[in-house]
């Protein structure tokens, strides 16, 4: 197991290098002049522009600039924006907001998605199963943009104005964990649907497996056959999905953060791309990639814990 962990950690290094370089290259290939963007519509003094270009290494070849960037990141320095602020101060608090949002969403997803999926699988073909499948279809067909505003209006505004229950804040992060419930659920909706279906299929497949039949033939009670013999095996593909989804949730939080006015990284990313704040964009995406890689690493380790066949390969 120890060797497995070390091997997976070493494998993460080239992935990190490759992804950061790609992001770096793509962002710098975007059209438009960042120095001009600083000045908006006005003309920039050519001497000042040249000085700034020199200062930000904009005249160097891409690979050299990537080298500078890498050196700084290793020492924990994400660089400065074109406006002179350290990139890391822009991160402050924002990653925490998005991470809390994504974690809330992930919890909703795991509890509701796996719960509904297991229920549907155990009631295969009956009305509960059909209702759950129809519900997942409904969830995937409603865009976050719609579900976000509707839930905000109904649970955030109308619940307060008509019944006087002000449990769900309309926007912002002033109310601690409660602030994250609505946006977390909205962010999770589509994933809940996918996870429900994945869980259902996974458990149904496992229930057909020979070793489940063996457990029945051993005279094991049904609860044990399901809870011990089938469940652990059907969890394996779900862990993969949940791990990969944490990254997707963090990156995909832009709309939800905007609707509920959460000062998270998604909003910042959108603004920075718009303003062509390349160091900020690359910085944010690099951290997102890091989170993604770590999440995948955790998935791989969990995988090995759940499935002994992986450990020894």
């Amino acid at each position: 197991m120890g060797r497995f962990v070390i091997r997976r950690l070493l494998q993460a290094i080239p992935v990190l290098l490759g992804t950061t370089f790609l992001i770096f290259a793509i962002v710098y290939a975007l059209p438009g002049d960042p120095i001009q963007a600083l000045a908006g519509e006005r003309r920039v003094d050519p001497i000042l522009a040249a000085t700034l270009r020199e200062q930000f290494h904009l005249n160097d070849p891409l690979i050299v600039r990537y080298g500078y960037y890498l050196r700084d990141i290793v020492s924990g320095n994400f660089g400065t924006t074109f406006r002179g602020l350290p990139v890391s101060t822009i991160f402050e608090g924002k990653f925490a907001v998005t991470l809390k949002l994504a974690t809330t969403a992930l919890l909703f997803e795991a509890v509701i998605g796996i719960g509904l999926g297991l229920w549907a699988a155990l009631r295969r073909g009956r009305w509960e199963d059909k209702a759950i499948l129809a519900f997942t279809l409904l969830l995937v067909s409603i865009p976050t943009l719609v579900s976000g505003f509707v839930l905000q209006l109904v649970l955030g505004v109308q619940l307060k104005t008509s019944l006087g229950i002000a449990f769900f804040p309309v926007a912002g992060v002033q109310d601690g964990i409660r602030s994250y419930l609505l946006p977390g659920f909205v962010l999770a909706t589509v994933s809940i649907a996918y996870l429900t279906r994945l869980t259902r299929t996974s458990l149904m497949e496992t229930l057909r497996a020979d070793y489940v039949r063996t457990a029945v033939a051993k005279g094991m009670p049904r609860s044990r056959v399901l809870g011990r013999h089938a469940l652990r095996n059907s969890l394996i593909p779900l862990v993969t999905y949940l791990g990969a989804d944490l990254g997707a949730l963090m990156g995909g939080a832009v709309i939800t953060e905007t609707i509920f006015n959460l000062p998270g990284i998604g909003q910042q990313l959108f603004t920075s791309v718009y303003l062509r704040e390349n160091p900020v964009v690359v910085g944010i995406v690099t951290v997102l990639v890091l989170i993604y890689i770590v999440a995948n690493l955790v998935v791989d380790l969990l995988y090995a814990v759940l499935d002994p066949r992986i450990r020894y390969e």
């Binding site: 497996a209 020979d210 070793y211 039949r213 063996t214 457990a215 029945v216 033939a217 051993k218 005279g219 094991m220 009670p221 013999h229 652990r232 095996n233 759940l306 499935d307 002994p308 066949r309």
Partner: peptide
Amino acid sequence: RGQIRGQRIAMIFQDALSALNPVFT
């Protein structure tokens, strides 16, 4: 029936690899 199954009438299957649970010793 659960008192008979596995205890008084037992069964072994064709493909032992798929008939044994892969995640338990």
